[in-house]
Design a protein around this nucleic acid. Structure first.
Length: 401
DNA sequence: CGAGATTCATGTGAAGTATACCTTTAGGCTTAA
DNA sequence: AAGCCTAAAGGTATACTTCACATGAATCTCGTA
């Protein structure tokens, strides 16, 4: 190890961190109290409380824009219920699942398999019939009398992808159970989601509804202050920093997660620069970085073929801002395939991949008709200009080009 | 000139295929009585 | 004879391919004013 590096690491260890508890700013942190969500907490607690008497709670749907505290409130209420249940020896179990996660809960099979794994069942990734997995799950649930509360986050994404039949199957679960009972808490960012599903399913799965309004700037400030007092040592935050974070996040339909991310990333930048105070300028830098990282993380998590498709799109968009079409991308894609020795997929499949990249918000794809010249998707990038080059770089390396 | 037919390039649905993995079953081998 | 291992048979989910038909406005065609 070089002298320089050793020194750096030594110093790093000695240096006092500006964070008291960095976790308090991370998005999966559950604070002790949740400001401005008292009403929603009471509603949800009221709905779920019957579980403590071993009665099945009503199913609930929770709606609200991103970053309005839906997941947080659900976690909070459930934690408390679990705590009380434990103190009083009541048999309640809860499962939290994010339906958006690729390869984990993005199909009916995987969803049920994942829930079953929470019961220490060993369910293979493929090979079993889906109803067999249902049986494993039900059997496991019936081993002893209990109330199960399943929280399905971003359930709208799942239904968009595989259709609403799964919801119907979920509603029927209780009729197969003798001892235990299951309740669902569905969380959705899409406010009109429930209107587009089968009315029968709707009535049984959405017995109750809770709506989360966005936070306003004042509320965001309060939240930020509360969390930052947990996260930082005193007097680290400069004037106007909190206000600016709140203002930026309020602009994005009151997204508290974004506000907290801004503050955290800004602090990380400060720390890395060996400075001691967060000043307003860092918020702008943080904003840029978040924007960049957000796309980065999504892109990096994609399978190879998706990356290659995106890379080809990037190539075509570069410097050429008149619309590009599916056919163009496919040609470029094929070239790139042969360059890095990957077997090309069919255009049919690429069409689906483009649609998925569109859903992920990395590109904008709109089906248009060019009249005499056919029908196609008109595609443009949804990535901020400044990050294109970076992403291009990462893709290039990832694909060995 | 304008209504209706044509056309193109690809969207899109359905069905088929490859792969990877599962359970069941039957046969063969080992083991212990 | 009982127990265990292995391989074949028969099954599924998922990602992808193949096939076939659907789309929809620019362009073409042709009858009419």
């Amino acid at each position: 190890m070089s002298k320089k590096l050793t020194d750096f690491l030594q110093n790093y260890l000695k240096k006092k961190s500006i964070f008291k508890n960095k976790k308090a700013l991370q998005s999966n942190y559950t604070p002790k109290n949740v400001p401005y969500r008292g009403e929603q907490i009471n509603q949800l607690a009221g709905i779920l409380a019957p579980a403590l008497r071993m009665e099945k709670p009503s199913n609930v749907f929770i709606y609200g824009r991103p970053g309005t505290g839906k997941t947080l409130v659900a976690r909070h209420v459930i934690n408390d219920i679990l705590k009380i249940a434990k103190e009083n020896n009541i048999n309640i179990k809860t499962v939290y699942l994010n339906c958006k996660l690729k390869k984990i809960a993005d199909t009916e099979y995987r969803l049920i398999a994942q829930i079953s794994r929470e019961f220490e069942e060993n369910v293979p990734a493929t090979g079993l019939p889906t109803d067999e997995v249902y049986k494993i799950f039900l059997r496991s649930l019936e081993k002893k009398k209990q109330i199960l509360i399943i929280v399905l986050d971003e359930i709208d994404q799942l239904v968009k992808k595989i259709g609403d039949e799964i919801l119907y199957n979920l509603t029927r679960l209780n009729s197969e159970l003798k001892e235990s009972e299951v309740s669902f808490v569905g969380i959705s960012n899409d406010l009109i989601f429930i209107d587009n599903i089968d009315p029968r399913v709707k009535s049984s799965l959405s017995e109750e509804e809770i709506v989360f309004p966005p936070y306003n700037a004042i509320q965001l400030q309060k939240i930020l202050r509360q969390r930052s007092s947990l996260a930082f040592f005193d007097s680290i935050i400069g004037d106007g920093v909190i206000e600016k974070c709140a203002a930026y996040a309020a602009r994005e339909h009151g997204d508290a997660r974004r506000a907290l991310d801004l503050l955290r990333v800004a602090a990380e930048l400060v720390e890395r620069k060996n400075e001691e105070k967060i000043i307003v300028d860092y918020i702008d830098k943080a904003e840029e970085k978040i924007e960049r990282d957000k796309v980065f993380d999504v892109v990096i998590a994609q399978p190879k073929q998706y990356k290659l498709t995106l890379y080809s799109t990037l190539q075509l968009c570069n410097g050429n801002n008149k619309g590009i079409f599916t056919g163009d991308i496919y040609n470029t894609y094929r070239e790139n395939c042969s360059r890095c020795g990957i077997k090309p997929l069919t255009q049919r499949r690429l069409s689906d991949i483009i649609a998925e990249l569109d859903m992920l918000g990395i590109i904008n794809a709109k089906v248009i008709s060019k009249g005499r010249y056919g029908r196609t998707r008109e595609i443009s990038l949804a990535i901020p200009e400044a990050t294109v080059e970076n992403i291009n770089q990462v893709l290039k390396e990832g694909l060995g080009l």
